[in-house]
Structures are given as structure tokens and as C-alpha cells.
Amino acid sequence: MHPPLLARIRHQMIRSRWQRWLFPVGCCVPYGLSLAWLVHIGQLWIVIVLLAPLLMGIVIAGITLWLAQKEFRS
């Protein structure tokens, strides 16, 4: 016998720790909307400037993971 649907949903919400990722997602929504608006009005250079730190962080994280893999491979 399965628990009621509401209890299963509540259980999944507790397990997902939604409070932990709600704030970052809430902050990303206006950022993404502003980027879309800037693209819509033709200000692509501002979008590129705003995305540069994000892309650089992704590149640095990728290089770090690659180097860690090379270093600690047994």
C-alpha cells in the first residue's frame, strides 16, 4: 500500500532540500530575463560582458577537474 499522493509529494520536497536551491534559482530568473531583454533590444555586447565571468568560471572549473583527474589517476 502506497502513502497518499500529498504525503509522497511532501516527502519528495523534503528530500530535495528545496530551500537550499530556491534562492539561487530566484536570483537567476531576473538575470536571465534581463539578458533576454538585452538581446531583444539589440544590446548584444552588454550580454557578452555580463556572461564573461560565468564562462570564465566554467572554463576554470573544467580545467581544475581535468588537472585533478590527471593528478590523482592511479
Rank of each mutant, 00 (worst) to 15 (best):
Q12F: 10
P53L: 12
L55R: 12
R10N: 01
R10D: 02
K70T: 04
W45H: 08
I46Q: 05
P4D: 13
L65Y: 11
I9T: 03
I63S: 04
V49Y: 08
S34P: 03
A52P: 02
C28S: 14
P24E: 00
L65H: 07
C28A: 15
P53D: 10
H2G: 05
A7D: 10
A52W: 15
Q43P: 01
Q43W: 01
A7N: 09
I48T: 06
C27R: 12
M56N: 05
L6K: 07
R15T: 11
A36H: 02
V39P: 04
G57M: 11
L6I: 10
G42S: 07
I41W: 06
R20N: 05
W21E: 01
G26I: 09
Q43T: 07
R10I: 01
K70A: 03
R20C: 04
V47E: 07
A52I: 12
I48L: 15
R8V: 09
L54Q: 11
A61Y: 06
W18G: 04
L54R: 10
I48Y: 09
L51S: 03
V25W: 12
V49M: 04
M56H: 05
L38E: 09
V29A: 07
V59Q: 00
L50Y: 14
V49E: 03
L50G: 10
G32P: 05
A61E: 13
L44K: 03
K70C: 03
F72L: 13
H11L: 12
P53M: 09
L51D: 03
C27S: 04
G26E: 11
H2A: 12
I9K: 08
A61M: 13
W21N: 02
A68G: 05
P4V: 10
